[in-house]
Computed example of a mutant assay.
Amino acid sequence: MTDDVLRVAAIQSPPCTTDLAHNAAIAFDAVRRAANEGARLIALPELATVPYFAGSPAGRYREWANPAQGAFADKWAALAKECDAALIVPFYEHDPASGCYHNAVLGFDAKGLSLRANASPVARKLHLPVGDDPPPGYDEPAHFTPGSGLHVVNVGVWRVGVLVCYDRRFPECWRALRAQGADLVIVPVAGSGGDDMDFFVGEMRTHARENGLAVLCANKAGDEFLDDARIDNFGESCVIAADGAVLARRSGMLGAGIVSATLVHADIARTRRRLNYYAHRRTDLYGTPSF
């Protein structure tokens, strides 16, 4: 497989429990399976090895957080090298320098080296939702500090951006990633966000086609229960082409598994020539934003 052709995979994980070692073991096994099936870029869901805890009291479960550099990261780096595959690993981050906690993502190339954007090894969730349906709801600002910038890294000839879950709601993010040269956007997700399954996938199909960006989305499948909260992870992990076509999709009814497809860099260029919305923007009507 050449650099122009990339086999990608999304890990559709089972619900996480409070046994974090068990969660990590399941995730590691799934990554190895995906790599054995030929994937060379593998993405995991949001908060991949911990239950979604934003429905719990503020500050609870901070012992689950890890720094971006240290034993936690080293284990994933070693796995990437073992599997000869780039890994996108969402995690609960504690930044010792600032004291802040983030909903974040680490990346490693096939040699186990950190994938960095502007010297930063982490992408951080930018938009933090608050909701009360179903009760007791969730309050991400009580648990996380939002990130301060978009994150685009190089994986071979591919430029790869990251939007964590709620970030996918904001069209400006997609446009800005396109402006920064992204070809592919990774969307790690936990829960449903109140969407039905077809809207969930349709939303990402629309953003892909509007911007000429391939999408790799990883979600969990199955309900997580923590304290008084239930998180309805409904799966629907998917790979979407830059023209919005669904290349692969896994129903939550099928449970955990691997969703994979092959992307061709030249196909994205052809799609952009045919669906040239980005170049046809009327910036004379609404100014010239950075995207």
Rank of each mutant, 00 (worst) to 15 (best):
A78H: 03
E224T: 11
S114N: 03
A190I: 11
S13F: 00
P121W: 03
D74K: 11
C83T: 13
V185Q: 02
P134T: 09
M197L: 13
S114H: 03
P67N: 10
V89G: 04
F144Y: 12
R274Y: 08
P289T: 07
M1Q: 04
P135S: 09
A266F: 03
G252L: 04
A266V: 06
F72M: 10
H151D: 00
G70R: 09
G156N: 08
P188E: 01
A54L: 12
A117M: 06
A65S: 15
P121R: 09
L213N: 07
N211R: 06
R62T: 11
H127Y: 05
R205V: 00
D3F: 01
V239A: 04
G257R: 01
Y138C: 04
G212S: 06
A242N: 05
F72A: 12
A43P: 09
I186K: 10
V160T: 08
D29L: 10
A269D: 15
Y278K: 04
D109P: 08
H22I: 02
P289A: 12
R175H: 10
H207V: 06
R250G: 01
S13L: 07
R169K: 06
A261K: 13
D198R: 13
Y138F: 15
R124W: 01
A256G: 05
N118F: 05
A142S: 14
F53K: 00
G235I: 01
L20E: 07
L163I: 11
L263S: 03
H207L: 08
D95F: 13
Y277C: 05
T271I: 15
A25P: 02
I186D: 00
F170T: 12
G255E: 01
G255H: 02
A242D: 05
A97R: 15
E203L: 06
N36C: 09
Y278F: 13
T206E: 04
V187C: 14
V162Q: 04
N103L: 14
V31G: 00
R270C: 02
H22N: 10
E210T: 12
P15D: 14
V189W: 00
H94R: 14
G99A: 10
W158G: 02
D223R: 15
D167K: 04
D267G: 02
D183H: 15
L213F: 03
L263G: 05
L126V: 05
M197N: 13
T17Q: 10
G131D: 13
G191Y: 02
R60D: 12
I88R: 05
